[in-house]
Design a protein around this nucleic acid. Sequence first.
DNA 1: GCATGCTCAG
DNA 2: CTGAGCATGC
Lengths: 263, 263
Amino acid sequence: MVSIATWNINSVRLRADQVVRFLSEQGPDVLCLQEIKCAEHLFPHEVFEAAGYTHRVVHGQKGYHGVATVSRIPLREFGRHDWQDNGEARHVGVELLGPGQGLVLENVYIPAGGDIPDREQNVKFGQKLDFLERMARWADKLDRPTLIVGDFNIAPLECDVYDHKALLKVVSHTPIEIEALYRFRDAHGWVDLGRKHIPAPERNWTWWSYRTYWQEKDRGRRLDHMWASPELATQSVSHRFVEETRRWEQPSDHVPLITEFAL
Amino acid sequence: MVSIATWNINSVRLRADQVVRFLSEQGPDVLCLQEIKCAEHLFPHEVFEAAGYTHRVVHGQKGYHGVATVSRIPLREFGRHDWQDNGEARHVGVELLGPGQGLVLENVYIPAGGDIPDREQNVKFGQKLDFLERMARWADKLDRPTLIVGDFNIAPLECDVYDHKALLKVVSHTPIEIEALYRFRDAHGWVDLGRKHIPAPERNWTWWSYRTYWQEKDRGRRLDHMWASPELATQSVSHRFVEETRRWEQPSDHVPLITEFAL
DNA sequence: GCATGCTCAG
DNA sequence: CTGAGCATGC
């Protein structure tokens, strides 16, 4: 059995303690982090080393974005892509070497896309769509058992947001983004493990805005995903999201997901 | 008996908890704070109210400097001076109304003075000397029992610094500053309570730099003072500095002083 | 609202 | 080293 987690941590330095707490309480074999917000040389390696996560691949940059995959089972880097060709650190791939041997794990942080859902008025929205398109083309060619995880910044289903109608024009839930995500899915038959294990309309949000979380209303979205190649998807045996981390002190605005595979 | 404390807190918002801990452990009747680093409307009044310090006079400004006097015995504002006439919040005076009735308590934050001890090369040094000169002239005219406390940014005696010879050319311990301080003293017979109660050469440093504190060497200075008018000085019965606060988590670089008066 | 990194100040 | 405020991004 191999368990794999993903978490947009929103600064790994600030929340190294929380990551360790999560690792010790939930014990995933591998954890993919997004928005580590530091360059590689500032990544808190000691903390992960001490926690037993002795295999790490870090693709960082100063201040923004950045992804890292940490593991207690051996792995090796499998490549990093810059689909925007602008130097942002938004992807790193690894290949598992011990248990789960042969599995490829792709850690992705899709751009947020700015505020206005129109590529004419908002270049960031166009960049998000282009990123997705290029990632879809790349993903289509993958020919090994692969898991693509991370912060997709897209909530595809109606039940993936707190108010479907209100959010149709809000970046993350617009039809154009969802169509782009579905083109990614359909080209290769990628399986949405979140919805395989927690079928709609059950709620499994992964993100709550800092701006509104303190209010009474419960306004989340499902922005974080785990997509498996068809054969691999048949081997996933459990999936959960750890909502309680959102109530920890000084939390990330995202919560982690964990999937177990019969490998 | 009335006890009066002074502490350069280096951000009262960041260290409100530490101030409350100090107040509960040491129980001074009145506390004069310097470098509160906030405007009046951001001062954490609730915290002091809950701790029983229900009388407060705050002279703050945004970001820098700022002084406040908080008290569990009644007091009223007695004026605020801007000796530099540049809008900086570096002084507030109060008059005690209950126990200690009639005592005037002046809370002062003298400018640090920059790095180079030469008014030609460093305007801040000139401003510090001018501040002292004007304060001395003002203090000379005071005609009530008065206590002047605060961060003076001057360590007058050889034993007030960790290395007298090395610091003769370092702002805070230069002869020109010390002479200015002594002109202040002599014009009115102000009594240095720190040295009345803890005679030289005993050490009673009040400040340790953040930059060097982590080193092994113990390199402090006595920058914080309590000066009493001659009659009032005869009524001081004890004086101490609370060095342990410098070892608390995320401490101020200054430690508090407390004097008790037979009033 | 909450990160980073910059500047300025001690 | 350690504050505050600012700009920027999500």
